[in-house]
Structure formats: C-alpha cells, structure tokens
Design a protein around this nucleic acid. Sequence first.
DNA 1: CATTAAATATCGTCC
DNA 2: GGACGATGTTTAATG
Lengths: 243, 243
Amino acid sequence: MISQELCDRINRDLGDRRFTLIVCDCSIEYYGRSRSEIGRGHRMIVVKPDTTILIHSLSGFKPVNWMSPPTETIAEYEKELLLHSQRTKKPYEEIKIRIHDVLDYRAYANLIDDGRLDITHTEKDLQDYLVSHPKLVHPEFRLKKAEYQTPLGFFDLYGKIGDKYVVVELKAEKAGLPAALQVKRYVEWLKQHVKPVQGMLMAPGITANALTILRKEGIEFKKIDVRKIYIKHKKNKTLGEWC
Amino acid sequence: MISQELCDRINRDLGDRRFTLIVCDCSIEYYGRSRSEIGRGHRMIVVKPDTTILIHSLSGFKPVNWMSPPTETIAEYEKELLLHSQRTKKPYEEIKIRIHDVLDYRAYANLIDDGRLDITHTEKDLQDYLVSHPKLVHPEFRLKKAEYQTPLGFFDLYGKIGDKYVVVELKAEKAGLPAALQVKRYVEWLKQHVKPVQGMLMAPGITANALTILRKEGIEFKKIDVRKIYIKHKKNKTLGEWC
DNA sequence: CATTAAATATCGTCC
DNA sequence: GGACGATGTTTAATG
C-alpha cells in the first residue's frame, strides 16, 4: 500500500489541514525536551487540523509520542515512507516516523466541532460553594476574601472565626504532603501580620504523612467532597440525575 | 449509516478487544472524578484493546473525554445510537456518548506492538551522569549516596565538600518554586542531624522567585542541562546525531 | 493498595 | 512570553 501516490496524498491532506489518520507499522524517534525511540509496532498516527500530532500505541492514555501545535508534518518517499514532523516554535522538537507498512489511511475534510466542554465538580466549584455556604467551613466562619492575594500565592479562603484569623486551603482530591506544606507556609506567613491565626485544609481525604504535619502545626483538617455536595453551578443546573 | 447492524458490529468488535475507531458527530456526558458535558460536534472515538477509551476533538493534545482501563463499553441502539462506557473498578467513572451521525467506522484485529519506548535525557540520566562525574557538582564533591532516603523523600545526591554535608536536588527542566522549597525542606531537615550543611539545586534554569528563596536560604544554584551533556546511556548509544 | 515524585506532563490565567 | 497552580492530570517506583 506504500507508494509515491500515498506519499503525495498524505502531503496534500496535511496541507489542507485535514484530520488525518494512519494506522501502520512504524518505528519512531523523538528529540526535544527529552529524547526517545521505539522500534517497530502497529500504531495509529493522528494529525489534527490544528497540527497537533499524536502517535497512539495499542494501550494506555498517553500517546507513545506527540507534539503540540504549531507543527509541520511532511511525508517523504524514497525507498521507504517517512513522516517527518517538527515544531515550528520554541522549544524545538522533532519526530521522525519510519513507516514500514500502512494498514489504513484516512483523511476527513469539513469536520465541525462547536461544542464547548463544560466541567464542574472542580476545586473552583468547591470554592464557589463555600463562599455562599461559609457555615460548612465552620458554623462561625465569616469570609473576608476568596482568592486573597499574598506574596506566597492566593489563599483559597480567608476570614475569621471569632477573633481568630483563618486561612483555608481547598483540594478537590485527596490532600498530600505538598498541600499540607502549603497551608503550613500560609500560616507561618500570616502569623507575621496578624494574630491569632488558624490554618485549615479541606479535602475529601488526606495522606497519613500530611495529617501528621497538620497536627504538629495545629492546622485543622476538615473532610469535604465537592462531588457529594448539591451544586447549583453557573448555568443553574443540578446534579440530581447523577447523584 | 446508523443501524442495528452497526450497533451489533460495534459490540462484536469491542467484545473481541479490537482497536476500534468511530469518527462521528456526537455529544458526551461524563461523571466520575468530576463531571462534564459537551454538545454536538465531530469527534473521533478510540477504544484500545486494553479497553482505554479516548474521545478526541479536532484540536489539542488532550482527549475531550477519556477513561483508563479497565472499562466496559457497550453500544445500544434504540431510536438513537448510544455508546455507554464505564470503569469497572474504583473510582467509578462513566461516559455516555450520544452518536448522532457516523462518518466512519473501523476496527482492526491482530495488531501487534512489541516496541518498548526508550526515553533518555531525563532527570534520572542527569543523576547517573553526575554520579560518575561528581566534579561537575563541585571540584571537591565526594558522593556518599545517590537517592539517599529520608522521611522527607529521596535526596537526589548526598555527599560532602570538605567538611560540609551537601544535599543536591536535580531538575531536568527549569526549576520553579516547588523545587526551591523542596531543597529548603531538605536543608532544614538535614541541619537537625549534621552540620554544617550546604544545599544545592542543579537545573538548566530557574525562575526569579525560586532564586530569591535559594539566596535567602544560602542554597547554591548551579546551571546544568542534561541535553547538553554527552551521554552514554545504558545501551551505550550516543546522542551525536541530534546534538 | 497507598504514597511519592517525575513527566516530552498539559492547560488556563495572570502579570 | 514567563510564572504559577490545577488537572477527571498519567505514569512509574516503592513500601
């Protein structure tokens, strides 16, 4: 199936920015932020209209090789079929694909996708929810500012409980060491400006090491899972169907 | 092109663990670690033999939706064609794809990929190189242990310069705040056990904020780029061609 | 299975 | 464009 005609057709389809698929037996070399090589095997090469190139193997989420746009991909045919792809901006990257056999070749024109991916149940949703339901932080929590900017970064929630100044760090996923150290830093910085200070970490879970650090620092951990909260997000839709 | 026959064929191909491609007009809902939805548009659905499912839009590296194995995907046809996919282990996840139009359907049997992706120019390679060339750390650096285990994690390199105990953190990419804080933690911990202590961060670059922290803590930054080092890696190949 | 850190992480956002 | 943090991060190594 490999021929000069195929090579020409690939270049024509790539030039037209068509969504292009090559299912083939190939070997690949990459050089850029790192360097990689892989021997022969059946893979699927995808070149998207935005020039993203992905080479997917038979398993796993990640492509075996890839490049983000802007890239330029050109097919060459001389004894063997080569696909040569390079990023046209910094950092420079390059993929060379030696195509030994083509099982299938497809290119699609006139594809349209106006859809916008709408994601909810993220850390931002948790924050929005707690801003409007501060009692979930603490029955007496009074919010002063969400996304309170400091030299160390943004405090997710900043407010008071009684006479205590409170900084709250939120995580949508189980909190680990980095999250605990983050709150520790925040508390240490805040203590230089106001007193007394209470740190809080709110997440659906926490690792043992992280909890140890919190206890040592007198920082409170409170369990909260954004997925288990009834959310009216921006478009006023509910999660009833799924929950 | 949508029909009961197509639905049956999809289920047969999925059951046979074939590499399956559907180029189609679809809308998608996801529920799992978060929740997402996207309206109609042309996309490519990929189901790999290991049951990985990817739905790629016309642009970008990341699939618009995906699930890691093990998953179970089933097609249903009743008025409309639905692809329903769910993860069969924790955490539970689910994707519902409403297929409005099928532009192309493909399934490939007997694909083989024995290739092993060999990646170099990583942080590990830098570490290996410095273990055998400790003078690049410092003319008088004497390595005691690479990957020195501590409660805070592994020190990339641990050794001495004169009477100073030295902990070295390596980065293959430009170092940011997290890297600087990591060395700071290491130095603080190490000081509780031995003295005097010298921290070092070696990377091809560093952000301004990170450098400020290092200076305040008396930690040394040394520029090194694994890509610019001549490496003989495990298989004894060189990088001459690329460099 | 949980934890930890690296990754060619990618992606969005802010400065 | 650089820097920073979130991500449905994924992946690999390790206990």
